[in-house]
């Protein structure tokens, strides 16, 4: 379980997250929607310990992320992260991209790591691209490669930071399909997204972010059919 209490985050003078309280249970899919600059992505970076926080706590499976004694490198293995820019390692083939972290972080043998990588690449539908360099893959394939790379660490949680917003429109579908597949398999996911269709169909709950606070959080159905907050209504009427 991911438990966030009164999270405060500043970038210099800028107060980006103003007291976030949030709980994500095992097996739950939470979508985070809201305008650009409302702090959605920053929240993911904080959960993964890639950003320092200035107040409050984030606890993942009972471990406080920003505690000095926390081994972040170990904790991060339980949280896969997928970025807007897919950031595949350009000097490695697809299978090497996925096998790298299991090999050097989890100290798996080479053959074990390759085995894991193959399995995850099949999982995301890249079984025909095992020995291809990222430069020869489309954006959608590279993003699926990034998902496979994260899955290879056998994470308990997956964090998606606008995984489809840098993609050409015709490539968005294949990545969403992969994410949908993960959700069906019971993966716990937090998805920062602009894809309202995905948020509505796949998520258990949806959180609407506005100006560094969670304006409204509810089941996907309630948020989309029956939003209580005026700001949520306004936002949804704009993006629809």
């Amino acid at each position: 379980m991911i438990q966030i209490d009164n999270l405060q985050k500043y970038f210099g003078q800028l107060h980006v997250l103003r007291g976030i309280d949030l709980q994500v249970k095992k097996g739950e899919v939470l979508s985070v929607i809201g305008a650009s600059g409302s702090g959605k992505s920053t929240l993911l970076y904080c959960i993964n310990g890639l950003e320092q926080i200035q107040g409050g706590t984030i606890t993942v499976d009972g471990v406080e992320v920003h505690d000095k004694g926390t081994d972040l490198n170990k904790l991060r293995q339980s949280m896969g992260m997928v970025f807007q820019q897919w950031n595949s390692f350009p000097h490695l083939t697809a299978i090497e991209n996925v096998a790298l972290a299991p090999k050097i972080v989890k100290k798996k043998s080479k053959s074990e790591a390759i085995e894991i990588a193959k399995k995850q690449l099949v999982h995301v539908g890249l079984e025909e691209k095992l020995n291809v360099y990222p430069s020869e893959l489309s954006g959608g394939q590279q993003q699926r490669l990034a998902i496979a790379r994260a899955l290879a660490m056998d994470p308990q949680y997956m964090l998606f930071d606008e995984a489809t917003s840098a993609l050409d429109p015709e490539l968005v579908g294949e990545v969403l399909e992969t994410m949908r597949l993960l959700a069906e398999e019971g993966m716990t996911m937090i998805c920062v997204t602009h894809e309202m269709g995905f948020a509505r169909d796949v998520s258990d709950r949806v959180a609407f972010f506005n100006d560094g606070v969670i304006e409204e959080i509810d089941t996907a159905e309630n948020i989309f059919e029956n939003p209580k907050s005026e700001l949520t209504q306004k936002f949804l009427s704009k993006v629809r």
Binding site: Y45, N48, L50, N73, K74, R76, Q77, M79, G80, M81, F83, Q85, N87, F89, L100, A101, I104, V105, K106, A146, R149, A150, M153
Partner: peptide, 16 residues
């Protein structure tokens, strides 16, 4: 920075 964050998010330490 984005590439390095991706590496760190996989659990690699600074030196890895």
């Amino acid at each position: 920075e984005p590439m390095r964050r991706a590496a760190r998010s996989l659990g690699m330490n600074y030196w890895q």
